[in-house]
Amino acid sequence: MRRLIGVVLILAGLSGLGYIGWQFWGTDWQSARIQEKVRTETEQAWSHGKEPRVKWGNVEGIVRVPRFGDDYAIPLLEFTGYDALHAGYGHMQESAEVGQKGNFVIVAHRTTRNEPLRHMPDLRVGDEVVIETRTHVYTYRLITRGDALRVRFDSGGWVLEELPDNPEPGGVEPPQVPGQRLITLVTCAELFHSDDRLAVFGELQRVDQKAPAA
């Protein structure tokens, strides 16, 4: 009986390790394939003047961050639930549209799901975040560092507001000027479980219209 219990405990431990391994490595592999597929289908649809339709949600664009490398190109989907984050970034529905006045908020995983924002703390003031859509390319310039602002999950909702106003005196926030065209990136603060979030702010610098599809 003791031997049987020992075997059961070992198998349970291995199952737990397998689940953890899948979460941290298996989902990376899975989501890397999903994101490549969504990006390819999006670019093909754009080349025909169409908006893409994929099973993970409505694709709004492709996110590029030069700080993360020349080949960094992650799909951006309307955030209707965590399934959308399998395919890349999620655009918070209650926030502004890309390029519009207000606060354009996008979120992504820091671990698992191909880790789009694993290196969020490496972002620096002046770095660019580029959002490509079917018709335009929007270039935002960061005005805070990627590691400068850490907020609690249950009390950091102010970073999603139209004009984020830090309740902490002297805390990190964008210039308090109404009518700005802001971007906010949000992800987990830690590589493992965390109730904190990192947030970084940027402002729109340039909008370039793309040539019409052939």
Results as ranks from 00 to 15, higher is better:
D122A: 13
H109F: 04
E97W: 04
V98W: 03
P116M: 09
A148N: 13
H91F: 07
R134L: 11
A96V: 04
M120P: 05
Y140F: 01
D122F: 13
R110I: 09
M92L: 00
I143A: 06
S95E: 01
G88Q: 04
E94W: 03
R113K: 14
T135E: 14
V98Y: 01
S95P: 04
E128Y: 14
H86E: 12
P121H: 12
R150L: 01
T133Q: 13
R118V: 08
G146D: 06
T111R: 04
T144G: 05
V129D: 14
R141Q: 13
G90M: 09
G90Y: 08
R110C: 03
I106K: 05
I131D: 03
R145I: 05
L85A: 08
V105D: 04
P121G: 13
H136S: 12
T112Y: 11
H91W: 11
F104V: 03
T144M: 07
R145E: 07
R124F: 02
V129M: 14
V129I: 15
A148I: 06
L142C: 04
R113E: 10
V137E: 15
R145W: 02
L123Y: 01
G126H: 11
M120A: 03
H86N: 10
G102C: 02
L85E: 10
V137F: 12
A108R: 10
G126A: 07
G90D: 09
K101H: 12
G126V: 11
D122K: 11
D127F: 10
G88D: 01
T111S: 11
Y140H: 08
R124G: 12
H109E: 07
H136W: 10
Y140K: 07
A148Q: 14
E97V: 02
L85N: 06
D127W: 10
V151N: 04
L149M: 12
G90K: 05
A148K: 10
G90E: 13
Y89I: 00
H86Q: 00
H119S: 09
D147V: 13
I131T: 05
E128A: 15
T135D: 14
M120C: 00
E97A: 10
H119L: 00
V137P: 12
Y89P: 02
Q93V: 02
T112G: 03
E132Y: 10
R118E: 02
V129P: 15
R118Y: 08
D147Q: 12
F104L: 07
Y140A: 02
G99L: 02
M92F: 00
I106N: 02
H109L: 02
V98N: 03
Y138A: 00
E97F: 01
P121L: 13
N103D: 07
H91Y: 05
V151M: 04
A87Q: 00
E94P: 08
P121V: 11
T112C: 09
